[in-house]
């Protein structure tokens, strides 16, 4: 059919360019962070779990766990808890995504002249900011219960960076999951179901050497172990850094690329 000219007085103004992507990502990140701050229960809940694990493993189980090569168990423990926090923190992305989907917020944003990529990018960026805050608190708590850095500041920061990179990757993965399950409750359950085995079948709380052969084969090759080992090497100077760090970065980047691609694709069809 013939197309009519657009009637006068109708603005077709907003062009999509990298700048609008950045600005909108920041706008939407601010929204997610404001929502999080105004639900302090959730932030406290997010801190509660790692705090309990720190206290539990430091004071209840810690005495019975001996990790070869580590003088003090708390030094081994805290990097593990940091990775655990990154995993659980990242898994909450699924809940946020599903919540926005089921409440119609996503429909609204997708009907606005903003880049759809910005909507997802903002989600994961906001979760990254929250994670940075949580990890800082957990390390602070660790320092209170006896954890000490045994390496230069640069390495310590690199270790924290690895934890954040891993958390960011997890966040993208769970964003993808949230886009599929669509309900916040299912997302929360799915998050735990996936996160728990990854945390426990890993070098998070103890060396994998004591695990049965089959379990160890899995534990040694999955990203939680690589990341925890790399952080230990960086923050404590125990053992070689290069191999675990390389694998940790590769895992995280791989997860980001695959999940972000699939999530963007999925987001278009929702």
């Amino acid at each position: 059919m013939s197309t009519f000219p657009i009637p006068e007085g109708i603005r077709v103004g907003r062009s999509q360019n990298p700048w609008t992507f950045v600005v909108d990502t920041l706008r939407l990140t601010r929204r997610s962070l404001l929502l999080a701050v105004r639900m302090p229960q959730l932030i406290i809940l997010g801190l509660l779990l790692p705090t309990m694990f720190v206290l539990l493993f430091r004071y209840v189980f810690g005495g019975a766990i001996i990790v070869p090569g580590y003088h003090s168990y708390v030094d081994y423990l805290i990097p593990g808890i940091v990775v655990q926090t990154a995993l659980f923190g990242g898994s909450s992305s699924a809940v946020g995504v599903a919540d926005d989907l089921s409440k119609g917020a996503t429909d609204r944003f997708r009907s606005l002249p903003t880049s759809r990529g910005a909507i997802l990018a903002a989600r994961t960026l906001a979760d990254l900011v929250r994670l940075a805050y949580t990890i800082a608190l957990i390390i602070g708590l660790g320092l209170l219960v006896g954890f000490r850095f045994h390496n230069g500041w640069l390495q310590v920061l690199a270790g924290a960076g690895l934890a954040l990179l891993f958390g960011y990757a997890v966040s993208w993965f769970f964003t993808l999951l949230g886009l599929f399950v669509r309900s916040a409750e299912t997302a929360a359950v799915a998050g735990s179901v996936i996160a728990f085995p990854l945390v426990f079948a890993a070098s998070t709380f103890t060396a994998t050497a004591s695990m049965p052969h089959w379990l160890r084969a899995f534990a040694d090759r999955q990203p939680v172990s690589y990341t925890a080992n790399a952080i230990r090497a960086l923050m404590l100077g125990t053992g070689p850094v290069q191999r675990p760090a390389l694998y940790a970065v590769a895992w995280s980047c791989g997860i980001i690329v695959v999940s972000a691609t699939l999530a963007t694709w999925r987001f278009k069809k929702i």
Binding site: I10, R11, V12, G13, R14, K103, G104, A105, D107, R108, S111, L112, P113, T114
Partner: peptide
């Protein structure tokens, strides 16, 4: 999307 406003079925 620059031309429309959407109020969906549930207050978003």
């Amino acid at each position: 999307r620059q031309l429309i406003g959407l109020a969906g079925q549930f207050a978003a």
